[in-house]
Design a protein around this nucleic acid. Structure first.
Length: 328
DNA sequence: AAATCAGTCAACCGCTGACTG
DNA sequence: TCAGTCAGCGGTTGACTGATT
């Protein structure tokens, strides 16, 4: 942990040493005292307007800074520690679908923040993919494995795949049921997979700050310890997300484009013990899986569209929901 | 032991879109 | 319709750290 370095700027965000003290806002690393203030305020009052949070919590920070600190570090439902291989696979997978939409990717990885995933991608995965792709067949399109564009590129992806090299070659084995199945060569399935923005309009479980759907128990360990919290968050269902536990992957829906696919309302991908399951194949529904597919509607006139969350329905089974306050 | 380098990560910056008066 | 405010997002920066020379 870096030492907090108290630099001060004016409320306009520009450095201004002539401002009066009351108008000065701190920048840089957060001190433990500041963390404690923010934490205590959030737990007692919940999330409101962030500029009010900053002011009322007695912090000489801008609201934006408070928001970021809360989301990326203090939020009790955060999972800490290194990314598991499963999470790594998922990040690669979702990045191939969503590109640099880090918040969308984070929405599908309970307990992880967009910042965390972004950093992990830029520092670790990107490099690894580069190394792997450079060692793969030279016949592959350079674009197919060039993550520098950081955007999904369906055409190049499949060009490379067809060429026997490129990105397809660097998909982890555990991803192959999704990435590498020969049946995926069909147009409809390709469209299925590579609808570039299947959930852009929909936040998934984490979007809009909705709390984690998982139960974070003591097995998670370090997270609770770091925060000084006893974490036991229960919402929508119980899913263990410790590194060694099964991972529930919030759904990635696809748009049907063919007659054959008209009956397919949603494709929901689950990850469990190194296997992926899709409800489109009726494979899924483990006990701990949440029946998210039921919450989407199929608008036949306009193609498949995302339905609204039926919040009331969802909340029926939720007896306690400690973080709802933050959304009020 | 000191200097240098590369990797990691927390935080900031600037932009965009939603909302409101 | 427009301007102001705010939340949220992705890109970027820079401090820190461990490895290497």
């Amino acid at each position: 942990m870096r030492k907090p370095e108290p630099s001060v700027v004016s409320s306009t965000g520009k450095n201004n040493k002539n401002n009066s003290m009351s108008n000065k806002l701190r920048k840089g690393l957060w001190s433990p005292e500041e963390d404690e203030k923010l934490m205590r305020y959030m737990l007692n009052n919940g999330q409101g307007c962030w500029s009010d949070v900053a002011r009322n919590a007695g912090l000489e920070r801008c609201g934006k800074s408070c928001r970021l600190r809360w989301i990326n570090y203090l939020r009790p439902d955060l999972k800490r520690g290194a990314f598991s291989p499963q999470e790594e696979d998922l990040i690669i997978h979702f990045h191939s679908l969503l590109g640099n939409r880090w918040s969308q990717i984070a929405a599908r990885l309970p307990g992880r923040t967009d910042n965390e995933i972004k950093n992990f991608w830029n520092s670790t995965i990107k490099k690894r993919l580069k190394v792997l792709s450079s060692s793969s067949s030279s016949t592959a399109s350079p674009n197919a494995s060039d993550s520098s564009s950081d955007q999904p590129n369906n055409k190049d992806f499949f060009t490379a795949a067809g060429g026997g090299g490129g990105f397809m070659n660097i998909i982890p084995p555990s991803m192959m049921p999704i990435y590498g199945d020969s049946s995926m060569q069909s147009t409809s399935l390709i469209n299925h997979m590579f609808d570039p923005f299947p959930m852009v309009e929909h936040g998934g479980y984490y979007n809009n700050g909705n709390p984690c759907t998982a139960q974070i128990g003591s097995s998670v360990g370090s997270g609770a310890d770091d925060c000084g919290f006893e974490e036991n968050i229960e919402a929508f269902g119980n899913v263990n997300i410790g590194v060694e536990e099964d991972i529930f992957v919030p759904p990635l829906e696809s748009v049907s484009t063919t007659d054959q696919d008209q009956n397919l309302k949603t494709e929901t991908i689950f990850y469990d013990n190194n296997n992926y399951y899709s409800n489109s194949n009726n494979i899924i529904k483990g006990e701990n899986m949440i029946g998210v597919g039921n919450y989407f509607e199929d608008d036949q006139d306009q193609g498949l569209t995302m339905g609204e969350w039926d919040l009331e329905d969802l909340m029926k089974d939720v007896s306690s929901f400690p973080f709802l306050d933050y959304q009020s």
